[in-house]
Amino acid sequence: MKYKVFIGIDVSKLTIDVHLHGIGASKTFSNEEKGFALFLSWVKKYSKQSEPAEMIICFEHTGMYSIKLATYLNDIGIPFAMLPALQIKQSIGIRRGKNDQIDAQRIAEYAWLHRETIQATLLPAKSILKLQSLLTLRNRLVCDRGGYEATWKEQKKALEGKEHKGIFQVYKSLIMNLTVQVKKIEEQIKAVIESDETVKLNYQLLTSIKCVGPVLAANMIAYTHNFTRFATWRKFACYVGTAPFEHQSGTSIKGRTRVSSLSNKQLKKLIHMVAICACAYNPEMKSYYKRRVSEGKNKMSTLNVIRNKIISRMFAVVNRGSCYVDLMKYAA
């Protein structure tokens, strides 16, 4: 669709700074529903000839600060593009100086320059948004617990005697409390999955794959918006940082093919752990890993192939709508 009005918004904790491209008008509003309503009324004064569907509102994805605006625009049916900040930053070239109004102007310029290719963002279902929040909280609690466990273990080696018993009891209590909270979060995650039939079905399909457990399955559903965000598993592999890319230029630079550091590192970590588990407990992956390494292939490269195999299988079972079949059991 061809848009006529291009609006850039710089979202912060308390305010949103708005800029209308071509008109040059800028204004600041509060980052709440009342401010959003005033913002749209202000925009209509400058775009009386345009329908709401002919405008595109572009802003950076700033997590919980931008989700309120995105939800508001989604509910009233106004197109918006919520983009990664790095994508906009790398596209504007060399610039000096910044403030909220300048950032809003640059975002509006980005929307206008990419008017032929920019696509409106579609928010996932509310159950997916809730699942994302729960998984983020679970990951934070697990990381905190791991930090306390590591410190407790090291201090038990270094500090001896009854005078340090109180310190160890505090660590033990913290770890036990965090474990209880993690279990409560996992129960809520399970309840969200059970509440949506399509999410529940995809969850069951994913966990039918060997070594793919509840945590990876839930994260896959959350980050892929229940497998509607990526057209193919290869695009997802690029997003998650397991797709290899060439590093070559002219005759002087002939580097190794390697994966990009621009990735979803949390999801990549989970897939990597599953790949390691598959190499140890999945007979098919174990034999493949040993055979490829014995041929002189790099171990990390082989592990990355297995990561991509797991990704392709997850997308395959969801697209096919049937559980994973272990063909190795039927091999002659």
Rank of each mutant, 00 (worst) to 15 (best):
W233A: 09
E186I: 10
L205S: 06
T232W: 05
K190T: 04
N177H: 07
F236T: 00
T198R: 14
V180R: 05
W233M: 01
T224P: 08
L174G: 00
Q204L: 06
L205Y: 06
A231C: 02
N177M: 10
K184G: 12
E246R: 12
T242F: 04
Q181P: 02
Q169L: 13
K190Q: 13
K235T: 08
P244V: 10
F168H: 10
I175D: 05
V180C: 00
T228A: 01
C211L: 07
K184M: 13
Y203M: 08
I167C: 12
K184H: 06
K235H: 14
G241W: 02
F227M: 05
I253V: 15
Q169P: 00
A218V: 02
G241I: 02
V170C: 09
K183S: 08
F236L: 05
S208L: 09
C238K: 14
N202H: 15
G241Y: 02
A243I: 02
I189L: 00
S195H: 03
V192G: 03
Q188A: 00
E246Y: 11
S252Q: 12
Q181R: 07
N219S: 13
T232H: 07
A243Y: 13
F168V: 12
N219P: 08
K183D: 10
N177L: 13
L216P: 14
Q169W: 05
A231I: 04
T207M: 09
T228C: 00
M176L: 14
T224M: 11
G213Q: 03
T251K: 15
K184E: 13
M176R: 15
S249P: 11
S195K: 03
K235Y: 06
G250Q: 11
I209M: 07
V170E: 05
I221V: 04
S249Y: 11
L174H: 07
K210I: 10
Y171R: 04
I253C: 12
V180S: 03
V212Y: 06
K200D: 03
A191H: 03
T224A: 14
V215G: 02
A217F: 09
T207K: 15
N202C: 04
G166W: 02
T198F: 06
V212S: 06
Y223Q: 14
L178N: 09
G241S: 01
F236P: 00
K200P: 02
T232G: 05
A237M: 04
A191F: 00
G250F: 09
A218T: 10
V199Q: 07
V240F: 08
E194S: 00
S195R: 04
Y203L: 03
I189A: 00
N226D: 05
Q204D: 13
P244E: 03
Q204Y: 05
I185A: 08
A217S: 14
L216E: 15
T232M: 03
V199R: 01
F227V: 11
S208Y: 09
C238H: 08
V170H: 10
L205N: 03
I193S: 01
S195M: 00
Y239N: 03
H247K: 15
I167T: 13
L206Y: 01
K200Y: 02
L201R: 15
N226A: 14
E194Q: 10
E194F: 00
P244T: 05
E246G: 11
V180A: 09
Q181L: 12
T251D: 15
Y203D: 06
G166S: 08
C211K: 07
V212K: 01
A222K: 00
K254D: 13
I193A: 07
G213M: 04
T228E: 05
